[in-house]
């Protein structure tokens, strides 16, 4: 399976007492956009952190290019991370640096290139996301959409093989959402990257993903290309795609009977 970049096998992960994943397996093919969807609160971000090695699973393997991430030594993990980028939901720009320095940060940390070459590299990345004119601004002076684009420029600064997008569309207005959708697609196609997009914005994901996994209730409940997903009959999948408020995924957080709670008096 040489066309698989990341392979997750039988992954189980618990946070405190709560089980987040119970033996899930999935493949992320090289050079494609893979989307992981699911209702909020089921630990999609957790999955990205597991791939990035920031969290350790209770059991199971996470293979990145054949190396099992949970078993790597610290230094080997840091070597792997140079080939992975992650775009955080908040952007996570360094607030004490300008946009330029933010994008230059990974280059300066990992290479010994002279400053004039770094400048050219940073300019290229900023040009891609359309923020060359904003290079002297501080992150606090950027709008949410611009901050995310700046963070994207930083994520691709070292030309990674894999980019993990954590909720790239959340909280964006339709225009910047469109911009980011286009950027993810263009970057993936032009640079030959592998992208993993975690999101619950069905429409946007459907438009760019090559393959989709839908995660709910600690398992993968559906997978396939966007067309296959649309054709699925599973009530869970249908509820999620159509955005129905109640169904197999309940509206209520699990609780005792409402009447008991009201009349019982003991909480």
């Amino acid at each position: 399976m040489s066309d698989t970049l990341v392979e997750i096998k039988n992954l189980t992960f618990n946070r405190e007492e709560r089980c987040i994943y119970n033996g899930i397996s999935l493949n992320i093919p090289k050079g494609k956009v893979t989307a992981i969807m699911g209702p909020s609160g089921i630990g999609k971000t957790t999955l990205l952190r597991l791939i990035g090695g920031q969290l350790k699973p209770a059991s199971g393997d996470i293979l990145f290019a054949g190396q099992n991430i949970p078993e790597l030594s610290r230094s080997a993990l840091y070597e792997i991370r140079k080939r992975i980028s992650m775009l955080f939901q908040s952007g996570a720009l360094f607030t004490d640096m300008s946009v330029f320095d933010n994008v230059a940060f990974p280059i300066r940390e990992h290479t010994k290139l002279p400053e004039n070459i770094i400048e050219k590299m940073v300019m290229m990345k900023l040009e891609v996301v359309g923020l060359r004119g904003a290079r002297h601004l501080k992150p606090s002076e950027l709008s949410g959409g611009m901050a995310r684009r700046a963070a994207l420029a930083r994520a691709i600064a070292l030309d990674p093989e894999l980019i993990l997008y954590d909720e790239p569309f959340a909280g964006q207005d339709p225009i910047s959402m469109g911009v980011i959708v286009r950027l993810i697609k263009d970057l993936n196609d032009a640079l030959g990257l592998t992208s993993v997009v975690v999101s619950h914005d069905v429409h946007e994901v459907m438009s760019i993903a090559d393959y989709i996994y839908i995660v709910a209730e600690q398992k993968i409940i559906g997978q396939g290309t966007p067309d296959e997903i649309r054709a699925q009959q599973s009530p869970l999948v249908r509820q999620f795609i159509k955005g129905e408020h109640d169904g197999p995924v309940p509206f209520h957080f699990p609780a005792k009977d409402f009447k008991d709670d009201l009349l019982g008096g003991k909480l």
Partner: peptide
């Protein structure tokens, strides 16, 4: 604390830069 809350430390770690060192 604020760097942690805004995921700056996390993102540094994902960039293979050790926040303890940096």
């Amino acid at each position: 604390g604020l760097m942690k809350a805004t995921e700056q430390l996390s993102s540094m770690e994902m960039m293979a830069v050790d926040p303890l060192r940096r």
